[in-house]
Design a protein around this nucleic acid. Sequence first.
DNA 1: AACTCAGGGCCATAG
DNA 2: CTATGGCCCTGAGTT
Length: 481
Amino acid sequence: MHLKFLHFIWSARNRREEPEPEESCPVCGDRVSGYHYGLLTCESCKGFFKRSVQNNKHYTCVEMQSCPMNPLQRKRCPYCRFQKCLAVGMKREAVRADRMRGGRNKFGPLYRRDRQMKEQKVYHQTTTTPCRIKMETTQALQPTAPSDLHLMTGHTNVPLSSDPFHQCQVYPSGMGQLGAPMPLDCTMNTDRGLTPPSLPYAGLYRTFPGYPQEKREVPFSCSPAPENHPFHSPPNNLFTPLNQLVEAEQDESQLCAKVLASLQREQASRGKHDRLNTFSIMCKMADQTLFGLVEWARNSALFKELKVEDQMVLLQSCWSELLVLDHLCKCATVTGDASSDQCLSVILVQIEVSTILSQAGVTLSSLVSRTQDLVTKLRALQLDRHEFVCLKYLVLFNPDVKSVQSRRQVEQTQERVNRALMERTQQTHPGHSDKFGQLLLRLPEVRSISLQVEDYLYQRHLLGDLPCNSLLTEMLHTKHS
DNA sequence: AACTCAGGGCCATAG
DNA sequence: CTATGGCCCTGAGTT
């Protein structure tokens, strides 16, 4: 079995887990190796930027100039990668025209200043109460200015405008709303040491929950010892960690909505004969969601307790169920206020139902119909986010998956989550004695739908409709190999 | 003088 | 073949 992407994801994690430095590359999120061309970046983006400038590269984007930038996908689109390098503040002028080696550049004082600010930040963190962690968790999810720009330039956050080489580049419609350069001073951004890369790919980054913000999953990462584990805690404390996790996911979903809204605007701005293929959009979003789910899982302290081999096997087994569950939850927990609760899945549903269903084949019609039925049932059960998180864990920790090595461990975790879900439903819906059982009864249908989704996707894949080099495709391949 | 660390080069690897 | 990215070399600035 060959899972290149998953292996990459894991190796990327292992690289990032090295103790120092903890910061992630503002371009791709990989581990930084030091200051390069104006700010802290990873080794690969350093090399990429250097080559691009030295060789005066002219790239083009075959997509919408908003390709996701992460260690897995950064190679896909050099155009978007270079744009992001410039956007976050990498300096062309720091690449030496004479190619002289060694020595120091003129940015030394700025690097020093940046370091001092980071140190202050660390000091501040270590001298504040635990309550602050949650504030930073929330704050970290807000759009912020590019990482070092306020330090490096001090006057503009639109570094591309003065670049004749890429003058005409424009970040895609919609992305601007989320990641538009905004005036920012140092006081606003003193927390940037922990903020994720934001501009203009913030939305796409946020489609990867916990990436690279994984350190912020405070509830789990703060409980290394089993006796402190959330699921070992007394019932009253049982859901505090879940609460925090859920809050983070809610933010994430709203940001997903913005990303998708931008796709919609992109769609709307195109000519009648140049419309984006809805299926392609769905695949893209599914791919992003899948990537996010993988990140979510591997950043979870519960999941980290497992052997890496077991982690891979479990994810390979349940990825489509997680996708379906994610979609269902987003539909089922959305309220009537579309402006505030519009999310990826809801918009997808709108696209699906309004434009696809009429032309859909039997399989897709059946899928949509079954999904809608299940959403209705979950809505009737008043599924909330906490319960949804539990369901996700229940799907993930499936002890029945073949070739799981630590079966007992998976089983025990599943039992713990199961109990957590039961207690949650009893706490929040004491009058609804069977909510717990009803929720569990929905999981076989989720499984069934997910298998149908896999089949459908695989058929489309054989027809060449699926984008190559996607995690989605690779997962499909793995299951069918 | 010794150390630091950012820019450049090299080269195995992937596609 | 080219692009990538990890690793090492270099040398101005710092201590």
